[in-house]
Simulated assay, not measured.
Amino acid sequence: MRRWSATLALLGAAVLAVAAPERIATYSPGATRTLVDFGAADKIVAATRWCPLPATHPAARDCDVFNPDLERLLRAKPDLVILPRTSNPLWAERCRGAGLKVLVLAPESETCVLADIRLIGEALGRSPEQIQRLNQTLERIPALLPRKLLIIWDGMMAGPDSYLSLPMRGAGFKSALKKGSWVKFDWETLAHVEPDVILWVESTPLDGPIVFSAKRKDEMSQVSLVKGLKCLNAALIFETTSGSQWLPGSGLAQVGLKFSELREKVR
């Protein structure tokens, strides 16, 4: 009986090993960072041009969730396709219809990145301990009472249900907005929520530091609706550039560290 049990255990381990993907196509730069942090960079055969991979990595850079090409994808022969939460559900169904295994990232929420890390880790066959170790880089307990931070990124404001709320909370911030994930920017809303700190984010290929923004402060000083805000008069107006670290994935741990540095500046 013990011999049979040992044999079955070995067979089970073999099945898990076979089930783990060897050729991954990723349409999410954030998920790509999580794959890298799980030590699975060598499994990636296709990625987006925004994915954080070295120039020497052999993966094709032709995954485009806004203009997907099934024939091109099939040529990469992936055994796992990772799609962002914002992808068209019909594209996921087309991939499944072609016989591909598809992982769609979790719906957006404050903790969706933790769910994404778990989904990707499980798909890779990683142990619960390995998954938890990576999640712990984001599950930080703030040492300071939260201050209201308003993040304005490409014309949208990050609310309490956005994935950015997790690293914000860990650094001692909370969204200045009362509800929602992403809200269209307007000056009236900015004035109404009265943030303690404002961070303007510009999308670029590279991540940058969070620095004081004289340009944004001067711009805001010309807007009558907001020129009386305390954060403006206290010069708590900052800016940064967002690369792949800012996208939903384990790279957010680095953004969390930047938030912590910012929190120390605005005590």
Rank of each mutant, 00 (worst) to 15 (best):
1 M>Y: 11
2 R>C: 07
3 R>Q: 13
3 R>Y: 09
3 R>T: 12
6 A>P: 00
8 L>R: 12
9 A>I: 12
11 L>W: 14
12 G>T: 08
13 A>S: 14
14 A>I: 06
14 A>Q: 11
15 V>P: 01
17 A>L: 14
17 A>K: 10
20 A>L: 08
24 I>C: 01
24 I>D: 03
29 P>R: 07
29 P>Y: 02
31 A>Y: 01
33 R>M: 14
33 R>T: 02
36 V>C: 09
38 F>P: 02
38 F>E: 06
40 A>W: 02
41 A>D: 12
51 C>R: 03
51 C>P: 02
52 P>I: 08
56 T>D: 14
60 A>R: 12
64 D>P: 01
65 V>K: 10
67 N>A: 15
71 E>S: 12
71 E>N: 10
73 L>P: 05
77 K>E: 14
77 K>D: 14
79 D>N: 11
79 D>W: 09
80 L>V: 10
82 I>E: 01
83 L>N: 05
84 P>Y: 07
85 R>Y: 09
87 S>W: 09
88 N>K: 12
89 P>K: 11
89 P>I: 12
92 A>V: 07
93 E>P: 02
94 R>A: 10
94 R>Q: 15
95 C>L: 11
95 C>T: 10
97 G>V: 08
98 A>W: 05
112 C>I: 01
113 V>H: 02
114 L>Y: 07
116 D>W: 04
119 L>V: 02
119 L>F: 05
120 I>T: 04
121 G>E: 08
124 L>H: 08
126 R>C: 14
126 R>T: 05
130 Q>P: 00
130 Q>N: 04
136 Q>Y: 02
140 R>I: 14
141 I>K: 15
142 P>E: 12
143 A>P: 02
146 P>K: 03
146 P>D: 04
147 R>W: 00
148 K>T: 07
154 D>F: 03
155 G>A: 09
155 G>R: 07
158 A>P: 00
159 G>D: 06
160 P>C: 07
161 D>P: 07
161 D>T: 14
163 Y>P: 04
168 M>T: 06
173 F>K: 03
173 F>S: 03
175 S>P: 02
176 A>W: 00
180 G>T: 10
181 S>D: 13
182 W>L: 12
184 K>E: 12
187 W>E: 11
187 W>V: 15
187 W>N: 11
188 E>A: 10
189 T>Q: 12
190 L>P: 02
192 H>Y: 13
192 H>S: 12
194 E>N: 11
201 V>D: 05
201 V>R: 01
202 E>D: 13
203 S>Y: 08
210 I>S: 06
211 V>H: 05
212 F>E: 13
215 K>V: 13
216 R>A: 11
217 K>Q: 15
221 S>Y: 04
222 Q>T: 06
223 V>H: 03
223 V>D: 01
227 K>M: 10
229 L>P: 04
229 L>H: 08
231 C>F: 14
236 L>K: 15
239 E>Q: 15
242 S>L: 11
242 S>H: 05
242 S>N: 10
245 Q>T: 07
248 P>L: 04
249 G>L: 05
253 A>G: 01
253 A>H: 12
255 V>S: 02
255 V>R: 03
259 F>V: 06
260 S>K: 13
260 S>H: 09
266 V>P: 08
267 R>T: 08
